[in-house]
Amino acid sequence: MPNTNVPVARLASAVKRYGAITALDGAELVVKPGELLALLGPNGAGKSTAISLMLGLIRPDAGSVELFGQDPQKIEARRRIGVMLQSALLPPTLRVGELLRLTASYYPVPRPVQEAAELAGVADLLKRPYGKLSGGQQRRVQFALALCGRPELLFLDEPTVGMDIEARQKLWTAIRRLIAEGCAVVLTTHYLEEAEALADRVCVMAHGRVIHEGTVDELRARVSLKRIRCITITSIEKVSAWPDVVEARLEGERMHITTAEAEIVVRQLLDADTQLRELEVQRAGLAEAFTELTRDAEQTPTADQREAA
């Protein structure tokens, strides 16, 4: 990549309305070369609309959209991308190899069919008709189609839905290989561990806006809460009543406490029960951070921010 500052895709103050619903409300988004950007957010946050804009499927009502500095509706820009959509029923009677050759024909310098198939783990399926494959196999074929054109930017919309753990791990490995080759990836996912495992940057959307952008660690750091786990004879009622405890519950014999002041609460716990065992303190995970962020956004929507279907 010649210049790491050149964005491969970008939304600037993008607005998209569907009737009375504002799906995107001035969204700002920059995808840099070679990075994996995870787009997170609850349903209706505007993720799909943002992707559709960057793919040139729809036009913004206001603001601008660029793909490699061009209008995404220009075929020259789209010759540099690969796409895997959430759902696409491909022709069931075509064989996997035929689908790959067809998709590769759209690109100037595609990968050889065998190479694309191996990368996506479908080399053994080339002769099989697409309609006879399992759901997970079909997703892998769609992934092979997405990467067969040697794209510089790959859009993966919920790629691992319907995959078992092993298939998911394999797909992650393949994505990491593509990134190592310099390919940028925009990933939307409902699995936070997927974003955690792959993403350089995380973009959280709510109400058609980007409400947080940063590394996974930065997102976690946004959340001050920590989790304490221990086995203690101190009663749950007593712990719940301490001023710094946000929440306390029992799971089996183990007590789970959420707090912003882990040090103070740990001291109190140890004072109250000298026999306390198996003490663990953890920063809250991405899941908590995500929930807290989107809950905050939920509580303070301005009048014109409506959730899109």
């Binding site: 793919l55 040139g56 499927l57 789209r78 796409v83 759902s87 029923l89 759209y106």
Partner: peptide
């Protein structure tokens, strides 16, 4: 009609298929 329904047309529009 079925390819509009099943998302294949959307995928083809996103891909650099010649017009």
């Amino acid at each position: 009609a079925s390819e509009r329904d099943g998302g294949l047309l959307t995928l083809k529009r996103a891909l650099p298929m010649p017009p």
